[in-house]
Design a protein around this nucleic acid. Structure first.
Lengths: 220, 220
DNA sequence: TGTACATCAGTGAACGCGCGTTCACTGATGTAC
DNA sequence: TGTACATCAGTGAACGCGCGTTCACTGATGTAC
């Protein structure tokens, strides 16, 4: 995420590296024990440091969590936009389905980050108003909207069930997100991986339709 | 949930009442601080008891959480089946949409319970295999399936995008759940209540379609 | 109906534990001249 | 290029705090006869 090697001085580079290590360790611990049980002591231990050293990097637990949440939003929206630019602008359906798939695989590969963003809000933690979290969330949202208005402007926007492109995007997102979140939290465990893959494709098509894209050939 | 006044002896009734009070207090605290931060001490304090007294009712925190999760599943599936039986069996669309709406309002009125079931899994807590949680989850799931197979058997099951009724139900569920969970966790906050209501109706129709019901008149 | 005993809810003291946080410190890295 | 000083990362000791849990107890409720 953060570019290591950016800082001018050696110290700055080392510092940036340590910040990154701390975040990684924190993510690992969140994966094991949940964000509510994230302890400075544990992070320090897993890095071979002592707890007080962490105060050089983060004022407290909330500041660290804020950074992690913001990073998570950035990670997600970076991956989504990268996927989008992989395919030619004319291939609306292809782009849309690819983005949906990336959304899902990102969640599968970054379960802690997914939980940080979309899980039940971390108790006792309130994102600072207009802080990095909120800004990152807004940016991610704008990217999502772009993906669909893009679609809407150029594409066949006739069959969409809501007139507003942004609203159509929200519904399409909800459709995909529902599947991804149920899967991530184990509510689809009775299906095997293959069945889930197949069903996800169907769900993405349902979302595409909501977003104003024509149904895939052979459907409906 | 648990029937107070059921117990034969006075003591049993009092005990059942206390169990209920403990659960309610726990839910309230979970709403404030999250399930991961649920403390026996706090529960006791909020009931005007001392902490050790709680050990008469629950062996430990996990046992209490297990009970709360199981209760939540029951509460949800009870409400859903109650809604369903409100409408005549012939009114497939009406039933389906009513059930979707109940799913949403239940989540809105029981945010802690919703988070317990569908939020990121409680860290450090593993549901006992074949324990009440698992049983309740299965029962709730079977009810959901029933709602749709019911639909599938009697209704127009032609336009459904997946052949298997149970799979169609899962997708329809995911569609509705996505909206509800985004809304519950504040990701739709920039829409006002009215807009959310309107969009939810659209989303429920999308789900209905996935479940094999015909699109509402005027749609598509 | 009354008495003697058993069961149970809840108390308060006590304990061990681990966490957050502060602080004075040491040693390494960077900078000015 | 070398030296003297400033900055910073990290340590280890120390503290206060609150939680989970155990235990012996008191007083109320229920039961047997």
């Amino acid at each position: 995420m953060t570019e290591v090697g950016e800082g001018r001085t050696r110290r700055e580079r080392l510092r940036a590296g340590t910040v990154e290590e701390i975040k990684q360790a924190a993510l690992g611990l969140i994966g094991e024990h949940g964000s509510a049980n994230l302890r400075f002591t544990d992070i320090a231990r897993s890095l071979g440091m002592t707890a007080p050293a962490l105060y050089r990097y983060f004022a407290d637990r909330d500041e660290l969590l804020t950074a992690l949440v913001a990073d998570s939003y950035h990670s997600l929206s970076d991956e989504l936009t990268a996927t989008r630019s992989t395919l030619p602008a004319e291939d609306l359906d292809g782009r849309f389905l690819a983005v949906c798939t990336t959304y899902r695989t990102w969640a599968q590969r970054n379960p802690e980050r997914f939980a940080l963003i979309f899980g039940s809000p971390v108790p006792g933690y309130a994102a600072p108003e207009e802080g990095p979290t909120v800004v990152a969330a807004r940016r991610a949202m704008e990217h999502l909207v772009e993906l669909v208005t893009d679609t809407a402007e150029r594409g066949r926007f006739g069959s969409v069930p809501v007139p507003d492109a942004e609203e159509a995007m929200l519904l399409a997102w909800a459709t995909v997100h529902g599947f991804v979140t149920l899967e991530a939290y184990g509510h689809l465990d009775k299906l095997d991986r293959q069945a889930r893959d197949r069903l996800f494709t169907v769900q993405a098509r349902v979302a595409a339709r909501t977003a104003g894209l024509a149904p895939a050939p052979g459907q409906d």
